[in-house]
Amino acid sequence: MTKSRINKILTYFIATVWIANGLFCKVLDLVPRHEQIIARILGGGFSRPLTILIGLSEIIIAVWILSGYKKKFIAITQIVVVATMNTLEFILVPDLLLWGKFNSLFALIFIIIVYYNAFYQKQFK
Score class of each variant (00 low, 15 high):
Met1Thr: 14
Thr2Glu: 13
Thr2Phe: 08
Lys3Phe: 12
Ile6Cys: 07
Asn7Pro: 00
Lys8Val: 05
Leu10Ser: 09
Phe13Arg: 00
Phe13Lys: 00
Ala15Ile: 06
Ala15Phe: 05
Thr16Asn: 00
Val17Met: 09
Ile19Tyr: 13
Ala20Leu: 13
Ala20Asp: 02
Asn21Ser: 06
Asn21Leu: 07
Asn21Ala: 05
Phe24Pro: 02
Cys25His: 13
Cys25Leu: 08
Lys26Glu: 08
Lys26Pro: 06
Asp29Val: 01
Leu30Met: 15
Leu30Phe: 15
Leu30Arg: 15
Pro32Asp: 01
Arg33Ser: 07
Arg33Pro: 00
His34Gly: 00
His34Leu: 02
Gln36Val: 01
Ile37Gln: 12
Ile37Glu: 09
Arg40Asp: 11
Arg40Ser: 09
Ile41Cys: 09
Gly44Lys: 15
Gly44Thr: 12
Gly45Ser: 14
Ser47Tyr: 08
Arg48Lys: 12
Pro49Glu: 12
Thr51Leu: 04
Ile52Ser: 02
Ile52Thr: 06
Ile54Arg: 02
Leu56Met: 09
Glu58Met: 11
Ile59Ser: 07
Ile60Cys: 14
Ile60Ser: 15
Ile61Trp: 13
Ile61Asp: 06
Ile61Leu: 12
Ala62Trp: 10
Ala62Ser: 11
Trp64Met: 03
Trp64Thr: 06
Leu66Ile: 12
Tyr69Lys: 13
Tyr69Ile: 02
Lys70Asp: 01
Lys70Tyr: 11
Ile74Thr: 08
Ile74Leu: 00
Ala75Asp: 10
Ile76Arg: 01
Thr77Ser: 10
Gln78Trp: 00
Ile79Asn: 01
Val80Ala: 09
Val80Trp: 00
Val81His: 10
Thr84Asp: 01
Leu88Val: 09
Glu89Ile: 08
Leu92Tyr: 13
Leu92Met: 13
Val93Ile: 03
Val93Ala: 07
Val93Met: 06
Pro94Ile: 08
Asp95Trp: 08
Asp95Arg: 07
Gly100Gln: 08
Lys101Pro: 06
Phe102Asp: 07
Asn103His: 11
Leu105Glu: 03
Leu105Ile: 11
Phe106Tyr: 14
Phe106Ala: 04
Phe106Gly: 07
Ile109Pro: 07
Phe110Trp: 14
Phe110Ile: 02
Phe110Ser: 07
Ile111Phe: 10
Val114Phe: 11
Tyr115Phe: 13
Tyr115Cys: 02
Tyr116Val: 05
Asn117Trp: 11
Asn117Leu: 00
Ala118Met: 05
Phe119Ala: 03
Phe119Glu: 10
Gln121Trp: 00
Phe124Met: 00
